[in-house]
Design a protein around this nucleic acid. Structure first.
Lengths: 247, 247
DNA sequence: CGACCGATTGACGACCATCAAAGGTAGTGG
DNA sequence: CCACTACCTTTGATGGTCGTCAATCGGTCG
């Protein structure tokens, strides 16, 4: 596993290979994709409800979130996105965006034109399946969150979310030795899990007291993966990783 | 709008056309799909976590639900499926199923072999986009449920769910005059919205008292669509219907 | 008629929300 | 180098929405 910062194309391929086996030829085709690099600051909207973008956004560095707000102004974070993810892949087939995507840390983004992606899919039909599969895996994550937020108590819920992040970061090489960057604030964790910021703070304190996590600034450390997995009732089946990626 | 019971292929086409425009040729191709009809009773599992099916399931009559259960045995219903839906379309690209699908009323199902769907997609690449789009719309529904269950109070939450069902049934011609079949029990509504069965019962009583809904056995009637929409903060954008379908 | 399933009601309590304020920490600018 | 500011974290007090437990009612079907 490379520990040096990968190039945008390497990162994209590494992520895709965690859920779909790619041939050498397909990887070369992906490597030829034009990608436009952009840096953004924390708390910047990348895509907004109602937009009709002509490009997709690949996360290269930093975290972003997808969210929606109710009429009363309550925000639900629907998913967190980490390097290697393409949070708005759906815009390839859903013209009008129905969600918002924003950075929750400084980010480096890579924009890929829809037309380039479509062309790639035409020439390499297996890549159509790969991208489709990626959107299906994200749908599966939404479902797991629905279960998590709907049926599990706050403690388990937050433990589960941390497990998911560790797992998703690990497949792109960003969670070695149980340590990873986790720039989300407690308010953001709260909006993601559907509990209040105050209660999130209290639950995190208990998780720390129980020795399941420890934090230094935005670094999160998981000393005992099995214990945390158990506390969060975490089973990674829903991430649909292929075996080589989890090994 | 036809009121006679449509054939399986007519129903499938009607549903697909609500989110994707089909050419005459494409409709003919869909009409040629082999579909195996099966009748099942209430509360029967159709697909189970861990299965690796070689076919997809088209709902022809009745309601089904997708669900998951926590380690503590709490069930979260992740989505309700109505005639015209293919709840396990994802199995085309995610080999191992990570959810359960069960009937919540007597159902007539139509099974379509994966190989037939793949062949169809190869011959008609636009249909690939259509099916992909269908899975994206369902992902969008999961997201809206996440917002609904996470951030809205029980009253709004249930109103929203009823709005969604009315809308989705309407596009397949099953909700005329604000009346439709709604066979879900209160326990099932509870598991779908993440509140308890007892509280669901109380909220339904208030909704009835407020004149937003009335029920006779499994028939649900919505006397004032705009009032219910407002109570449920319902905006159908997330269903990504094309205009002709909503008119 | 009895069994079963779903709807309804009552009493009670807990988990978590709400409101408010105080500590910490990092970044900015004088 | 030290205010000053902004943001995040932490703490305390209070209460409400909703969960839990348990029982009854009502309709359906064999």
């Amino acid at each position: 596993m490379t520990t040096l910062a990968p190039t945008p194309h390497e990162l994209m391929i590494r992520k895709m290979e965690s859920i779909f086996p790619l041939s050498v030829e397909e990887k070369q085709a992906i490597s030829a994709l034009p990608i436009q690099l952009v840096d953004i600051k924390t708390n910047q909207d990348i895509v907004r409800e109602g937009d009709e973008p002509s490009q997709c956004c690949l996360i290269l560095e930093g975290f972003t979130c997808m969210y929606k707000v109710t009429a009363e102004g309550k925000r639900q974070i629907l998913s967190l996105y980490v390097p290697g993810d393409v949070p708005d892949m759906q815009s390839l087939h859903l013209k009008v965006i129905d969600i918002n995507i924003a950075s929750i840390s400084p980010c480096k983004l890579g924009f890929i034109q829809h037309k380039d992606l479509r062309q790639l899919c035409e020439r390499y039909p297996r890549l159509t399946a790969a991208f489709w599969r990626e959107t299906l895996v994200h749908a599966s994550i939404f479902r797991e969150w629905l279960l998590n937020n709907g049926q599990r108590p706050a403690y388990t819920r937050i433990a589960h979310l941390i497990c998911e992040l560790r797992m998703r970061l690990k497949v792109v090489g960003l969670a070695e030795n149980g340590t990873f960057e986790m720039p989300a604030t407690q308010a953001e964790l709260a909006d993601a899990t559907g509990i209040t910021q105050v209660h999130t703070n209290r639950v995190l304190q208990v998780l720390r007291a129980d020795g399941l996590i420890s934090t230094v600034k935005t670094q999160m450390h998981v000393p005992d993966w099995n214990k945390l997995k158990q506390a969060g009732e975490f089973d990674s089946l829903y991430l649909h990783l292929i075996k080589t990626a989890t090994a």
